[in-house]
């Protein structure tokens, strides 16, 4: 796999995407380096989840122009599972309920299929158990939880915590957290943020999509971008998030309109 330090972790160039003939992403450019945390903010409906979905390979969206590269390799034509195998992880804004499939079996399958795709042997059962134990402890998830059907009947906060547990298990290169903070109470937010921070290494990168500065107090971003109507209209450091918290989006909309 390609991956020298010269290349970006993620490089998005002039990305346009539409759904049902309606253009939602209208020329996104974004570069994320290994070790960095980027935050993407923006009003409802501006295209944040769409961007995340398109990076993860959701086939409902049609990429009409532009490229997405991970460590110099283009992802555009890859299936969602292949992107996961390359190291892309999306924490869903709305995790899907899967009746009859336990969290544990789901994770075992996900990890072993990914290993298979990478030409590795299946993970030995005891190692898998150890890993599951470690990561569930990191996210303070009760063991009983792991034998429940995936997301079925989970509370909003439990679903989000479970997403980060999956991230911890998968150890992605690029993690995109789509409003992982929404629905979390203060204590849970700290646990989840702590989990994310503990998983950070100089080799991986994180994109955090959020509406609230609060999360960014815990997961401190190197860059903050504002997405408006399908375009990144402003980028800055972590202080930009504070400014947005204080002033809302109107001034940005005005700036963008100029």
């Amino acid at each position: 796999m390609a991956g020298n330090t010269e290349t970006d972790m993620l490089k998005i160039k002039n990305l346009h995407a539409s759904v049902e003939g309606k253009e939602i992403l209208k020329g996104i450019n974004l570069e994320v380096n290994p070790g960095e945390v980027h935050a993407i903010m923006g009003p409802n409906g501006s295209g944040k989840s769409t961007l995340a979905s398109v990076i993860a390979g959701n086939e409902d969206f049609e990429v009409t122009d532009g490229t997405i590269e991970l460590e110099g390799e283009e992802l555009n034509e890859l299936a969602p599972e292949e992107r996961a195998h390359q190291g892309v992880f999306l924490s869903f804004q709305y995790p899907v309920e899967i009746p009859g499939v336990t969290v544990t079996n789901f994770m075992k399958t996900a990890i072993n299929e990914t290993r298979k795709a990478r030409g590795l042997e299946e993970m030995p059962a005891n190692e898998m158990l150890k890993k599951i134990r470690e990561k569930s402890e990191l996210l303070e998830i009760d063991r009983k939880f792991l034998s429940r059907s995936l997301n079925e009947g989970f509370s909003g906060g439990e679903k989000k915590r479970n997403e980060i547990f999956q991230m911890a298990m998968m150890e992605p290169k690029l993690a995109i957290l789509d409003e992982t903070d929404s629905g979390l109470d203060i204590d849970a937010l700290k646990v989840v943020a702590n989990g994310v921070n503990r998983l950070k290494t100089p080799q991986n990168a994180t994109i955090v999509i959020t509406h609230y500065q609060r999360l960014l107090d815990y997961i401190v971003p190197d860059h903050v971008h504002v997405l408006l109507n399908g375009k990144i209209v402003k980028s800055g450091g972590k202080e930009l998030a504070l400014e947005l918290e204080e002033k809302g989006y109107d001034w940005i909309k005005q700036e963008a309109a100029v």
Binding site: N58, P80, A84, I98, A110, T114
Partner: peptide, 10 residues
């Protein structure tokens, strides 16, 4: 899609 996004082939 959710399962595939976790690396599980179709």
């Amino acid at each position: 899609l959710y399962l595939r996004s976790r690396g599980i082939p179709k």
